[in-house]
């Protein structure tokens, strides 16, 4: 009697794992500093883990961009992909806000081959097409557009580097991401392809999950104007993930477009 139930449960788990690849781990950037009173180098970790913010697997730095307060690229040095985390340093030479981002497109395929359901992933349509073997049937393609970013400010915050690109899921920070303090709320507008996006799910996780029994995370949904209001519970660093999906896939043959936005922010005590 037990066996069929267990098998069913196993099958269900497998199906869920296939259906929700994005839920597996949290991807994050962690800057050494977010508020500075003098130009200097900072260092940033990039990792994938369940524990916020303890590195488990390195996050590839391909696609990393560092944008300075003048909108021009900032100097990045010492990029390293280690066993548990990736690292890079950024030279902050001028006053204002820097944006450090890893943005990209990913394609996922699932197909039937030799009586089995298989999966493949790639960074371009060409790559994913090449990854699907001949003879595969029932091919399903989906696209994921992902942006992971964080912000660091020397002196007074400015907004030149924060300008949305108009592609994918992005943040239009009404409250500056380097101006977050306990007892105050942050109002952030979420954009999809540059337009305010209602109904976007946002998850907020305070740092230090290793030292508590519960995640202590909370969920928000963007309102009709695409705005979420975040009430920071305490000073510290927060992992924030927003996600939504639509059918505006850019690639021919892809049916669904998943959109992800991830950021790490620091909330200071007043």
């Amino acid at each position: 009697m037990m066996m069929p139930t267990l098998k069913k449960a196993g099958l269900l788990a497998l199906l869920l794992a296939v259906a929700l690849p994005a839920q597996a781990h949290k991807r994050w950037l962690l800057p050494s500093n977010t508020v500075l009173s003098q130009p200097q180098w900072i260092t940033v970790d990039a990792s994938v883990s369940n524990d916020i913010f303890f590195p488990e697997r390195p996050f590839p730095l391909k696609g990393l961009t560092a944008t300075g307060p003048d909108g021009k690229p900032a100097e990045v040095d010492n990029t390293l992909e280690g066993h548990r985390r990736s690292v890079f340093d950024v030279n902050l030479t001028q006053a204002g806000t820097y944006r450090l981002a890893i943005a990209g497109q990913f394609f996922f395929a699932s197909y039937q081959l030799g009586g089995e359901r298989k999966r493949a992933r790639g960074r371009s349509v060409k790559e994913i097409r090449a990854a699907i073997p001949k003879g595969a049937t029932q091919v399903k393609l989906s696209e994921t557009v992902s942006r992971m970013e964080t912000f660091v400010t020397v002196g007074a915050p400015n907004r030149t580097a924060l300008k949305p690109t108009g592609q994918g899921l992005e943040l239009d920070p009404i409250t500056h991401p380097n101006d977050l303090y306990t007892g105050e709320q942050a109002r952030w507008r979420l954009l999809v392809d540059g337009k305010p996006a209602a109904g976007v799910q946002v998850e907020v996780v305070p740092a230090g999950t290793r030292y508590r029994d519960q995640q202590n995370d909370w969920q928000l949904t963007s309102d009709a104007n695409g705005v979420v209001t975040i009430d920071w519970h305490a000073a510290g660093r927060y992992f924030v993930e927003a996600s939504t999906a639509d059918d505006n896939a850019s690639a021919f043959g892809a049916t669904e477009r998943r959109l992800q936005y991830l950021t790490t922010v620091e909330v200071l005590p007043l």
Binding site: V35, L36, S37, Q38, Q40, L268, P269, L270
Partner: peptide, 10 residues
């Protein structure tokens, strides 16, 4: 030293 002025947080 400007570097530590941020510690006067408010």
């Amino acid at each position: 030293r400007d570097k530590w002025l941020k510690d006067l947080r408010q």
